[in-house]
Simulated scan of single mutants.
Amino acid sequence: MTTALATPDVKTWPWQGFSIRYQQIGTTGAPVLCIHGFGASSDHWRQNLPAFGEQHRAYAIDLLGFGLSDKPAPNQPLPYTFETWGQQILDFCREVIGQPAYLIANSIGCIVALQAAVDGPEWVKGVVMLNCSIRLLHERRRADIPWHQRLSTPIVQNLLGYAPVGRFFFSRIARRSVIRNLLGQAYHRPEAITDELVEAILAPALTPGAADVFLAFVRYSQGPLAEDLLPQIRCPVWIIWGQDDPWEPVAMGRDLANYPAVKTMEELPGVGHCPQDEAPELVNPLVLGWLGEAEAA
């Protein structure tokens, strides 16, 4: 896209004593805030922010512990939970945006967005969820996974809790070849897995504290599920789901469309876990259309 808005401004925001990176583009219209998934960052919205910025004040944020935001040790002083990240989003709306915003989120970012909408409904105008995390590692999901995973998951999580083992495991993952292979599982379109994308995932993984954040989250089997939060939502919710997502099955995602807050669910054939990056030409018009209708109403 060759417009004056093609490159977002990259900024930092002090929150709870930590430095938070965010990106901003656009000067008019209702604000939108994009929230990334696990292991990603605000760079995962690089193909969406310019389009959103043409009609909205558009922001994307690095959650605490991810991207180029600070990565304090878990529970020193903040735990890496959806309540913590939800509070981060609400404070960002208050202190940086200065008015209620639409939240656009992918994967675990959807749970963050829903948590923020529940905790601070006056600051959230609506939520767009892209392939919302089903949280299959949650302790209340154990009945939904194969029996051998039911037995092995707690064992592996406990093993990773031993720092030398966990950090060695993370060091084996934080490599270009491994990241490219993982993206090859998540994405259905191989041409979407570019060197730029691999570097956007790898660079934050090599920063201090990244391993401990990763290990804290993979052992986090508590907290809310989407179905806990959706009944409490007062704002409209729209859902986009890549049908070929191997990590968050669309068959389970369809159940989320039954909650009263959900206005519509759009399935994208031939698209995987990160539709905003894999198929921005499909996602951007859908999102802008929904937000335009909501603003007109």
Results as ranks from 00 to 15, higher is better:
S152W: 13
A294I: 02
F168T: 13
I108E: 12
A279V: 11
Q222N: 15
I179W: 01
I89L: 15
R150G: 12
L68F: 15
V127D: 01
Q23V: 07
C132M: 04
I89Y: 05
P231S: 03
R180S: 03
A294D: 11
C93Q: 10
F170H: 09
L230K: 02
A211M: 07
S19R: 13
L230A: 07
Q55W: 05
G126P: 07
L68A: 07
Q232P: 00
Q157Y: 05
W123N: 08
Q99R: 10
P280F: 02
I145L: 13
G253K: 06
R234W: 04
Q47K: 14
W147N: 09
D119A: 15
G289C: 10
S107F: 05
R46Y: 01
V237H: 02
A174C: 06
W85R: 01
G29F: 03
V10F: 06
G67V: 15
V287W: 06
R254C: 01
H138A: 00
E191M: 00
A226P: 00
D212R: 09
I201T: 14
E227P: 00
D70W: 06
P249K: 02
A296M: 08
R189H: 09
R189M: 10
H56P: 14
A73M: 11
Y162T: 15
P72G: 02
G109S: 03
P14Y: 08
A40Q: 13
Q47F: 14
P246H: 15
Q16I: 08
I240S: 06
I193L: 07
G53T: 08
A4P: 01
M265Y: 06
L137K: 04
L202C: 10
I134N: 11
W13A: 11
A251H: 12
A174G: 04
W238K: 08
A6E: 11
I104Q: 07
P100A: 08
G166Y: 06
L182W: 13
I145N: 02
G270K: 08
V213K: 03
V165M: 14
G209A: 01
D62W: 09
P285Q: 14
T28E: 15
L78W: 13
Q23C: 04
W45E: 08
F214S: 11
A30P: 06
D70N: 00
I104T: 03
E196G: 07
P8F: 04
T194P: 03
P275W: 09
G184Q: 03
G98H: 05
Q243M: 15
P236A: 12
A40S: 11
C34H: 10
Q24F: 13
C235Y: 05
A296I: 05
W290E: 01
P14F: 06
R135D: 10
V178F: 14
A60P: 05
E83P: 00
P14C: 02
E199K: 06
W15R: 06
M252V: 05
P204D: 09
V250W: 03
S42F: 03
N181M: 14
R140N: 01
I111P: 03
L90G: 03
I201K: 10
R141A: 15
P285K: 09
V262E: 02
A210E: 09
G126E: 02
V178W: 10
P50R: 02
D277F: 04
D277R: 02
V262T: 07
I155M: 11
A296G: 01
T84Y: 04
S19C: 05
P14H: 08
A105H: 14
P285R: 12
I61K: 09
R142F: 08
